[in-house]
Design a binder for these strands. Sequence first.
RNA 1: GCGGGCAUAGUUUAGCGGUAAAACCCCAGCCUUCCAAGCUGGUGUCCUCGGUUCGAUUCCGAGUGCCCGCACCA
Length: 504
Amino acid sequence: MSESTPNPLSMETLVPLCKRRGFIFQSSEIYGGINGFYDYGPLGVELRKNIKDAWWRDMVQKREDIVGLDASIIMHPNVWKASGHIDQFTDPMVDCRESKLRYRADQLFFSPVAVDGESIGYVSVMEGAGMEEEAIEKAETLKRKLAKQGNLAPLELKDYTEAKEEERALIPSPATGKPGCLTAPRDFNMMFKTYVGALQDDSSVAYLRPETAQGIFANFKNIVDTGRVKVPFGIAQIGKAFRNEITPRNFIFRSREFEQLEIEYFIPPDDDLWPKYHREWIDTRLAWFESIGIPRSRLSEDVHPAEKLSHYSRATTDISFQFPFGVQELEGIAARGDYDLKQHQEFSGKSMEYFDESRRERYVPHVIEPSLGVDRTLLALLCSAYDEDEIDGEKRVVLRFHPRVAPYKAAVFPLLKNKPPLVEKAREIFHSLQRRWNIFYDASGAIGRRYRRQDEIGTPFGITVDFDTIEKDGTVTLRDRDTTKQERMSVEDVTAFLEEKIEG
RNA sequence: GCGGGCAUAGUUUAGCGGUAAAACCCCAGCCUUCCAAGCUGGUGUCCUCGGUUCGAUUCCGAGUGCCCGCACCA
């Protein structure tokens, strides 16, 4: 669509447009705003809903092997113990006051250095392949600096979370080598905490879910028992999730409240099977992005290197999008093995085994997880759709949304507002189309202005009632957003035309 | 969380120690037979709270928000 144009959109252009046209507002703006939360206005909510509907239609309703679910946001706290979020969503962080660098305390290692039994200080290194050699080198340097003679005692590397307070004063920063400038480890738990019931004590603590996936795993047994599903099959869910991000950034890209579109696709546990399913899902998802108007040229596959994989993951491939602020993840497609179901089996004491009739055996299925952010997709759509061109020497801003996701599918105009027969006919056409789609009606201002207004909110078609419509042949003009070309067609043909463009 | 920058109308900006301006947008009306035309009218707590001052939108402090860098990001 707009692939040929360079489209050098900056966030400084997009954010005001989103506000001006009612797509996205900062949350609680009248109170000064709240960091990391956003509200969707009249057009944003339509765009959002169209993304979710398209996904649900294509991933759930049009497939025989996927069923839907809508689990609650607050679940039993043990769900998060089993999933590992209570322990591992907490990353103890350490700041270096000198270099302003930040480290994860569990990735930072230190050791006392002793020469002939006399302690001469500490060394610190970052976790990594050569960290032991690096530590020895640093210890030698320290020994030379202090002009000590003798034998270096073997180093004992421990991670920084185990450092005692008196040790922290002596441990140098790995960057500057200066002792005592590292802070104590501080916890950043990313889960929002709340209390269930009237009593606000430790027994009533609950969490807002940081991902929708666990609601699916927690219902696996229910769906297997009642859903008439057979492996391989998937469970899909759309819902809000919450993460207390340290630094929300880049508009709605990383916010503290966001919505996920997730599928857990359960497959047999054979080691040679999952790569095939993983690949299939990557291809399915890429094709879907293209079907809603995100050009393939701005999408890429990023394979997570083995050493950066999460503890549960066998392989993760991100589908990334070229945002104005860089290439960033839209969707993660992870091969999660049987980690989650096994964890819930252990913590709940309930069997998560599935009986495979065709193989006459029981197993805990493995899973492929395509996990997408609605808000990120919406931002990617806005970035893909935004374009500027020139009509008769006038600059035009146009959002070239695919008709399927466009907030309004068409706008209906009487050519002139002060001629009642035109208005009457336009209202009639508007009401008739409105029964099926979200349609805009506008009578105010010059016709050119009305077209431009619709261009800027991405309405793909304009339908104008003029004197030929009421006096001659009953045809209207249908104006195309992308080309600005018009063609005449009968009112009856308009419906078929729109249907073809939107649903076809 | 750290460092730097910024905050005036819906948007983009100007301006001043004496209660604020332009353009565009938006709304209503007039006019208008297809691409932001014209005319008339309308819409504003200078982010918040403190301090200095006779007087603060302006100077100072704190808070909040936004942007950039670092770090973090299941």
